[in-house]
């Protein structure tokens, strides 16, 4: 899969903790972006349904409907997470994939998100908003960077809460 975006950020927590916040708390740190909405309806809340390969990432819409963003292809806690990523407007032959890697660096976790396969979505497709390819990918990468910053904040809260509970 080519046409890819990669962003990385260091987060002050162990890899397993960051993995758990990424998956279990995605509804809390994920912030919708009007340019990259999954469905034409008002944005909902993201969730991983289940755990492990065979689970799926969904968006639960305010209407109660559930949109499947993609199946989980790799679920390796504290190491790697791979899932599919489709918007409702995608044709059957369009598919993108997100790989998240969690690496221990010193006392931090380096989280790397690689979002690939945008070459399957033609440049004139509605999901790309008539942006030239490079501009679209740049905006998408900036959004991922903002999302990872949200993940870092959420992880910091989680670490603090656990420290207070004596479970850090």
């Amino acid at each position: 899969m080519s046409s890819k975006i990669l962003v990385a950020l260091r987060i002050k927590a162990p890899p397993l903790r960051v993995f758990e916040v990424f998956t279990a708390d995605i509804g809390a740190w994920w912030k919708p972006n009007a340019l990259f909405s999954f469905t034409p309806r008002a944005p909902g809340v993201l969730a991983f349904e289940g755990a492990g390969e065979g689970s799926r990432l969904v968006e639960r819409l305010p209407s109660g409907k559930v949109f499947e963003i993609g199946p989980v292809r790799v679920w390796d806690p504290g190491q790697r997470l791979v899932f599919g990523w489709r918007q409702a407007s995608f044709a059957p032959d369009m598919d993108t994939e997100v790989e998240v890697r969690f690496e221990l660096v010193g006392d931090e976790t380096r989280v790397t998100v690689e979002h690939r396969g945008w070459d399957t979505v033609p440049t004139q497709h509605v999901a790309r908003h008539r942006f030239p390819d490079a501009v679209f990918l740049q905006r998408h990468a900036e959004w991922w960077r903002a999302l990872l910053t949200g993940l870092a904040s959420r992880t910091a809260m989680d670490v603090q809460e656990r420290a207070r509970e004596g479970d850090a």
Binding site: S2, S3, K4, I5, L6, V7, A8, L9, R10, R110, W118, D119, D133, A134, L137, Q138, A141, R145
Partner: peptide, 9 residues
Amino acid sequence: ELVMLIEDN
């Protein structure tokens, strides 16, 4: 450390 990479088609 690589923090952003964008590749074309």
